[in-house]
């Protein structure tokens, strides 16, 4: 087992615990935005798609990598935008809600 792998496993295990701890208690109204926001975070797969795009050789690999970059970009960009749209709705509630009539 080389040093890099040991590092990666350490990062992985710590991230598992962090993932469980970081969201603790979430009110029901935020379940969907949180799901959507974390959906956007795994859009970071774009990084992986970019790396293989630059390493791919031959039409098959390049073709598959090309599709991977498109899909990953849709995940990342769409994910953040749609989450922002959901959360935009919450903004207006407290400040304007009180002075509504």
């Amino acid at each position: 087992m080389n040093a890099q792998l040991v590092n990666e496993i350490s990062i992985f295990v710590l991230a598992v615990f962090l993932g469980f701890e970081v969201i603790s208690k979430v009110p029901t109204i935020l379940h969907t935005p949180l799901m959507s926001g974390s959906n956007a975070i795994h859009g970071v797969i774009l990084v992986g798609a970019m790396v293989i795009m630059s390493e791919a050789t031959g039409p098959l690999q390049i073709g598959v990598a090309f599709v991977a970059v498109i899909l990953a970009t849709i995940n990342m960009v769409g994910g953040y935008v749609v989450t922002d749209r959901m959360l935009e709705m919450f903004k207006s509630r407290n400040p304007r809600g009180g002075a509504r009539s």
Binding site: F12, A15, V16, G19, F20, I23, V26, H31, V47, V51
Partner: peptide
């Protein structure tokens, strides 16, 4: 072999399971 993929993916995997 990319750490940001490991962290980003694992965070979502763990918190998503909890959610």
């Amino acid at each position: 072999g990319n750490p940001v993929l490991i962290v980003g993916g694992t965070l979502v995997g763990a918190s998503g399971t909890f959610l």
